[in-house]
Structure formats: structure tokens, C-alpha cells
Design a protein around this nucleic acid. Sequence first.
DNA 1: GAGTGGTCTAGACCACGGT
DNA 2: CCGTGGTCTAGACCACTCC
Lengths: 239, 239
Amino acid sequence: MDKKESLSQHLIDTLTYQILNELRPNDRLPSERELMAQFHVSRTTVRNALDKLELSGLIIRRHGKGTFVTNRSESLTNLADLFSFSKTMSILGRTPSDKIIKFKRISADEELIQRLKLKDNLNVYEVDRIRLADNKPMMFGKSFLPAGIFTNLDRQTLEEHSMYQTFENEYGVQIKEADESCRASILNEKIANLLYEKVGAPCLRLERTTLDKQGRAIEYTISWARADEFNYRVKHLYR
Amino acid sequence: MDKKESLSQHLIDTLTYQILNELRPNDRLPSERELMAQFHVSRTTVRNALDKLELSGLIIRRHGKGTFVTNRSESLTNLADLFSFSKTMSILGRTPSDKIIKFKRISADEELIQRLKLKDNLNVYEVDRIRLADNKPMMFGKSFLPAGIFTNLDRQTLEEHSMYQTFENEYGVQIKEADESCRASILNEKIANLLYEKVGAPCLRLERTTLDKQGRAIEYTISWARADEFNYRVKHLYR
DNA sequence: GAGTGGTCTAGACCACGGT
DNA sequence: CCGTGGTCTAGACCACTCC
């Protein structure tokens, strides 16, 4: 077992694997007391892990009855939760890939300086990507990465590994959170062509700012996603 | 203090009030140990409450430094988190109102039966509303409510109280969670007219299924929101 | 009554940030 | 060094569901 991984993260990973590969919708999970015994952890740790799985929509808990695997067949079209594009596509059984069409070191304008909270080094890398599932273009994304954090970033690394992998493995940057917003928009000519869509077709315009554990803004990405393929899902829990 | 309210919910409400009314962005909150003493609760309870506030985007925690009020001025346009439309508008300093333009008891079709998990009683109430902020139409929503749960629902009650208030106060229905999805679409003629928009203008199409604590589907709502006014925000926390 | 999830306590030790 | 948040333990009692 990975020593760096927390007990609850290990529980999350193990249960996620079981839910996706060994269990079926509406199956009951072991009770919280049973999980305590199986994993040799306290109830707090078990509940913490189940909280995360519930938020991500994999399970649902019923007071007095038990914890059950969610029926996700309805959301077959798509879901974007705490998963990245590639992870989401994998869960849906589609093969994700990226095509980088631009990689450039630029100087940040006012808006970027503010969004990435840049101080001294105003250089950023711009990475434009087409993101595909089963070789079909699904979305187009422009990412801006501070050169002060990702020094000497090169195109080849990004082509061979996922962006978040590169952040963690090459630069030791650990993601803490991402703030995402989405609004409806329409495709301009350039992006419509990249996605094989019509100019003026509706699309989702997503913006994401990602923070690492030190609270630094490490990424600002703006994406345009096909309206027919993208259904953005969120779960809200009350109380 | 309300006896029915849990300790952590009381903490959430108190801190939310302070954050919105007495504190400013980037202000530091009392440390978790200080909150324990102030509210006479355990650390678990404090952390539980802070978890919720962090998820809803009101605070941000920094390891080794403290807990701080989030700068929400950037999100002035809009946010929809664990808040309802009316609550969200209030936080943004706008006055929300609803105009019911249709109230009808109908028989559910196949899709509705599935979405609301109807068994015996296939009757549902359909409520169509225009939702306004400062008297400007922001979105149009069609809600479907099972007549088996909301017996003898009447239009006047809905016109005088919010839907969720009615659920809880008139029928004792407590909300547990809402599953929401959004995708981009374009306005048809009927809805465009209601929102004073152009036919074919981009819009966000939101779908929401709400479950109560017993796991019953109590509401299925589909809404169309103006693309220029609606910016749907989500925060993802990792680990 | 037995078993489930929901809430809470009173501790402990660790990792991080600043002095 | 101290104070911060992050993780975890080993309990307790409550509320709900089903028999």
C-alpha cells in the first residue's frame, strides 16, 4: 500500500474500484461497522470516505437501511464531477485523447494577471487543446499556466502525459481545489471548425481556476464544449 | 436556540450570517480551537461545519495559516451552489420573485413516471414559473410534483410561499439532496418571448431532481436560463 | 429488538507556516 | 518554537427501518 496515501483515500479508491467494476446499481455496500472491521479503521474514517463517494454521486445512503450503489445509467450521456475530462470519459467507457494545437510562452494581460494572481513573473504558457473521446472532438480548451511555477515546461511532456500528472510528477504541485463555472454560449467560426460543428451552434463555455495546496492559482482554463455531448452534473447535499 | 437544529447546523447558520454581514473578504475566522470554545462543541463538529462552508464557497482554509472569508466579488454575476434561486439572488443583493403562469393537475407520461419513480398514483402537479430578479425575467421553469406526496396542493399557497417552504411547512417533506444537470441549448419561441429574448438565443437548460430524506423523488424541474445572466458555479475539492 | 446511518465527544498525532 | 489546519481513534447516544 502506498504510504503517502491517507487511510480514507485508500478506502475511497478501493470502494470506487469495487463500485465501478464489481458492484451493480442498487447493490448494498457493507455497513459502516463492517467497513470499520474490514479496513481496520475508525468509524470517522469510514464516514469521511463515504461522504466523498456520496458527493461524487457514486453511492446513496438511506438512514436505517444502508448504503447503496447509485444507478448511473441515466447519466450515460455525460458527467463531470470531481473527475477530470479523461477520467470521466474512461468511466463512461470511452477512450479519451488530446491534441495540442498551440503551445506558446506569452506575457499575461491584465485579466490573466488577476485570475492567476501573478506577482513578479508575468510569463505564462498557453496550451490550446482539442479533447477527443473515441477520436471524436468533444471540446476545445485554452489553458494558461504560470511560467513562474512551471519553469521550462515543454510541449512534448504535455503530449505524453496528462496535465495534472505533469503538475504533480514534474513539479510537485498538488491540487487542492478547482472553481468552475459554466454558461451557455455559441460557437464562433474557429472553434466550430475544430469541433466539426456549425457556426452559431450552442455550446457550454466552461471556466476553471485551479488552486494547489499552498493556495496558488496554478491553472486558468477556458473551454468550449459541444452542447449535444456535454451534460454537466452536480449533486447538492442539504443539512 | 432551535432545539431541532443540530449543533453543526447552528454553527453553519451563525458563521454564514457573520460572513455575509459582519466580515469582509480575506478576513480570518477564529481558529478551529477557538470556535470549539466559543460554541462549546467538539473539534469534529467545528470541522464538519467548516467543511460545508468551504464547499459552498464562503470560506477557504489554508494549512498552517487559518481559515479565511472568500473573495466573492468576482462571482458577482451569479452563483448557484447549495442555494436556491431565491436565496442566491438575495445574497447577490437582488430581489427575487416568481410569477406562476400555469398550474395544472396532469397525468404523468412514461418519462415522468420514471424520473419521479411513481408507483400507484400517477397524478402530478405541473407548475410553470417565470423567475425574476429585480423584476427582470431570468429563467423559466417547469416543475412536476407528485400528487401522491403533495395532496391537494393549491396555486395560492405556491404564490405566497417558496416551493421548498411549502414542502417543509405544509407537507413535512425534508430535502436531502438535489441532482442537477445543465447543458447548453437555444430558446424556442415561447420561452424566448417569456424572457424577452430572441428566438435561437443561447441558454442554459437545467434539470433538477430533488430527493427527500426518505429517498423519494419529490420534484422534477426543467428550467431555461438566460445565457447572459446565468453563470453556474461549482467548487471541486480534492482529497 | 437488532441493525442501519446521523450526530457528537474528548482526546491524539501529524504537517505546514511563520517567529 | 507555537499555532494553524489535516487525519485519525474509540467510544457514546440518537433516529430511522424492518421484523
